[in-house]
Write a protein that binds this DNA or RNA. Structure first.
Lengths: 261, 261
DNA sequence: ATAATTTTGCACTGACCAGTGCACTATAAC
DNA sequence: GTTATAGTGCACTGGTCAGTGCAAAATTAT
């Protein structure tokens, strides 16, 4: 009933953030939340002084905390280490987030937002209703696979999996912010393609669910839960095989889709 | 190259073990390790007395420790609690396993063994080379889905996911004992079916990988990582949809497989 | 400058817990 | 019985860590 589909897809990022202890506080200007960088308008809302610094510190803490949580695990990660690597006083973290749990929630929410953007960008590759469907699907599939295999994506899933029994609401944070929207977007694209006669399915949500399953199903084992880097051609091979099977089931009715391999 | 296929399948159990504190020491005679129950031969090797008691205690500790680890998480679980619930002195645990990490490894290994048995039994439903393929696949698929959705199976994956970055060798313990054998067994069955002309595939391992992906791909989201119980008919629907797609891609060449829905 | 706010450094509490030591008991082989 | 092995109960050490208190900066608006 409810679109319980390929939530496994979401969560991905390009893993460009390299060094840990050296470039911890660099905080690349990622398109996180617009915040209130230099606009004098937001200054009236909350606090008259230190507004700018406050946002800076927050944006400095979140990615560092995510890295530490991912590296050490939530339970083992200490706020002293996070504070040190973020070059921030421990008190500042408490001022911003209250306690460790709240910090985890904020970190996962921010990371899920980033992942969602990447995934939606990938799915958007299916906007073209006319071109080569197989090629477009393979391309989108490869991009989704890459999102899934991103280092930060693995870390996000690990943290979720690890703490889900302690904090069940984490699931809603991540699924609501990242997984479900991706699935729905994919189903939307497939529906348009079906309506244009390029695909054959009466249930786009189910088709999206199965496409996502085919794409990501083998990645956990292949990537050894994030401890092994999957080479690029292997990702492409997975995407191609997934799309091949997908098109056998949902491909266009008239022409044959079994030209490859 | 190496058969990195549907390891996600493995790990399942019927969850028949019910009460924790009441029937903790019951220790059903699961085919864990042969040990040396009453054989006088092994008595000469290590210790002359208490051999029987020792095995009893060990079999009492393992399932209780698994339950506590699953409930509280590895880091939060304390050996005092495990000892109390297993009705055993804390010292006894240290005598048997050395330290907390070793206990975790032993627990996961034992649980993976149980899961493997269940999964192999399910895959064995594909031994019949003559009957209704679709029906057989749907039945096996349903049983594999049930293994995957078992409470203990969720817990096993959660523990693995949570601690994989701290103890990477856990992956080998579980994949080697449970996931890989299941994948290979499934590939074996598919190969026999292909050779008998009932399926069409040149790469049974790839086919098994995709079948497993189709079966389990949507279960993480549907089961909310183990926090929601998937009703039986939903499991059957997932299996039917997976097999339907699978047969479109790998079904017999001559007859049409699109009779359902 | 002045005042409001935020950040910092440091010390401290309180709790939790892995692992150990020891004296004692229970079981089983002889 | 004796003896060796295994298990028990309890107290204890040593270490870690979330969260707090406080007083001194630093920053920004007015």
């Amino acid at each position: 009933m409810s679109g319980t589909a390929s939530e496994r897809l979401a969560a991905g990022r390009s893993a460009a953030t390299g060094g840990a202890r050296t470039a911890a506080a660099q905080t690349a200007p990622d398109p996180d939340r617009p915040a209130s960088p230099t606009t004098p308008a937001a200054a009236t809302a909350l606090g008259r002084a230190g507004t700018r610094r406050r946002a800076d510190k927050r944006e400095s803490i979140l990615p560092t905390a995510f890295m530490v949580f991912a590296r050490e695990g939530y339970a083992q990660a200490t706020l002293d280490v996070i504070a040190a690597e973020a070059q921030v006083a421990k008190h500042t973290i408490y001022n911003h987030f209250g306690d460790k749990q709240a910090l985890l929630r904020a970190v996962l929410a921010a990371e899920a937002d980033k992942a969602l953007a990447k995934n939606l960008a990938a799915v958007d590759g299916l906007r073209d209703l006319d071109g080569d469907i197989r090629g477009a699907l393979e391309d989108v599939g490869y991009r989704l696979v890459s999102c899934f295999c991103d280092e930060r994506s693995w870390a996000l899933r690990r943290l979720l999996y690890a703490e889900i029994s302690q904090f069940p609401d984490l699931l809603d944070i991540i699924q609501g912010r990242a997984a479900n929207p991706v699935t729905e977007a994919l189903a939307d694209r497939l529906a348009r393609l079906a309506l244009a006669g390029r695909l054959r399915t009466a249930d786009p949500a189910a088709a999206a669910e199965q496409l996502a399953a085919l794409l990501t199903g083998s990645l956990e084992a292949r990537g050894r839960f994030g401890t092994r880097v999957i080479p690029d051609d292997e990702k492409r091979a997975v995407a191609r095989a997934a799309v091949d099977t997908f098109l056998h089931a949902f491909g266009p009715p008239t022409p044959a889709g079994a030209t490859t391999s």
